[in-house]
Design a protein around this nucleic acid. Structure first.
Length: 345
DNA sequence: CGGCTTTGACCCGCGC
DNA sequence: GCGCGGGTCAAAGCCG
């Protein structure tokens, strides 16, 4: 165990990750939001927020604006990926205080499904996608959900027939990594594993070990590109990140009383054009461009991303708009186009 | 001993 | 109704 961890950490140090976003994703967002991606609704949200990694960035140029954004939603999902013990020291520790301002998260479309596909042309890339299950309860029914959850736990049968299982919003991202289970700072307990159809790799199910935190995480490896790991989060942490010393992360939803709003919101944020500008890559506008946030300055804080996801973010708009993440299933997450391309190539 | 993983069984929703 | 596949449970085992 210990050794394994160390190995992973070691690997993480050398890890280079690309994160890709597609303009279609944005399109999806815009469409579902019924407004332009440039609206405050979306435009002010940072995708890093989504990951809950909006802290400890060593790249002010890119993230400052993000963080200073008036509408930074609390990380609906994995709050702040905690520092990987081995990786943390490597960074400048440029701590950025997140401004947990109340966000318009509640205005976010609750049933939007967003995909973020990745064009894994480079090694170690991540792609982010988010989905809010269309079946999921409409927003504010957190209580109801909890009750339902309880029902399910205490008694599996008494579920009403006409009551579809409600699901938390989901958020998925693809990561190029040798390691399946990325360390995002939270503690997870594996509760299941299933073979994945058409894939030699199993899908693992994890649950946040924090008491009363129902956040789940699903990890599977792409069958097309075995270097791609698809991680799907379901639900939102309403507690501080257990590993984060500052606890500044988890603090968001918790202390701000923002929980309900967050719960009711889509756990996804989209890259904000204005900060992307700073990278001089208006990927949202020009579908043919690819924003590579890599570089000397940007994203190289190991502690600010699921342990192995670092350094390279590539926003690459090139996928089919119809590709939306649905239920976080790999086959849905990975755009067919991309998969086809991979097969061809 | 507590926490975690493994793994087979089971439940449930959905499509045919 | 049936079969399939996704998701979850829970007992057993492992490990520090």
């Amino acid at each position: 165990m210990e050794q394994q961890k160390k190995e992973e950490e070691k690997r993480s140090e050398n890890f280079m990750a690309n994160l890709t976003f597609t303009d279609e994703i944005s399109a999806s967002f815009a469409a579902s939001a019924g407004s332009s991606i440039f609206d405050d609704k979306w435009g002010s949200l940072g995708f890093m927020d989504l990951l809950g990694i909006n802290q400890d960035f060593s790249s002010p140029s890119l993230f400052d604006s993000l963080i200073q954004s008036p509408f930074i939603p609390p990380p609906p999902l994995p709050a702040a990926p905690a520092p990987t013990p081995a990786a943390a020291p490597l960074q400048k520790q440029q701590e950025v205080q997140q401004q947990a301002l109340p966000s318009p998260a509640s205005t976010v479309p609750e049933s939007s499904e967003v995909l973020n596909t990745t064009a894994p042309t480079t090694p170690n890339s991540i792609s982010i996608s988010s989905s809010s299950n269309e079946e999921q309860s409409k927003g504010g029914d957190e209580e109801e959900q909890e009750q339902d959850d309880q029902k399910n736990k205490n008694n599996l049968k008494p579920k009403k027939k006409n009551q579809k299982r409600q699901r938390e919003p989901r958020f998925a991202f693809m990561t190029k990594s040798e390691v399946d289970h990325l360390d995002d700072g939270y503690r997870w307990r594996k509760y299941g594993q299933k073979a994945v159809k058409n894939s030699p790799y199993p899908r693992s199910y994890y649950r946040c070990t924090t008491a009363r935190c129902g956040v789940k995480k699903r990890v599977e490896r792409s069958s097309d590109d075995t270097t791609i790991v698809v991680t799907t989060y379901e639900g939102q942490h309403m507690h501080p990140c257990p590993i984060t010393p500052r606890g500044s992360m988890g603090m968001l939803p918790d202390n701000s009383g923002y929980g309900a709003a967050v719960a009711a919101s889509v756990p996804f944020v989209v890259p904000q054009p204005h900060y992307l500008h700073q990278q001089q890559q208006p990927f949202l506008i020009n579908p043919s461009t690819s924003l590579n946030i890599t570089g000397s300055s940007s994203f190289n804080h190991p502690t600010s991303f699921p342990s192995l996801i670092q350094e390279r973010l590539v926003f690459s708009p090139s996928m089919a708009p119809s590709v939306l993440v649905r239920d976080g299933l790999l086959q849905d997450i990975v755009p067919s186009q991309m998969r086809n391309e991979k097969k061809e190539g």
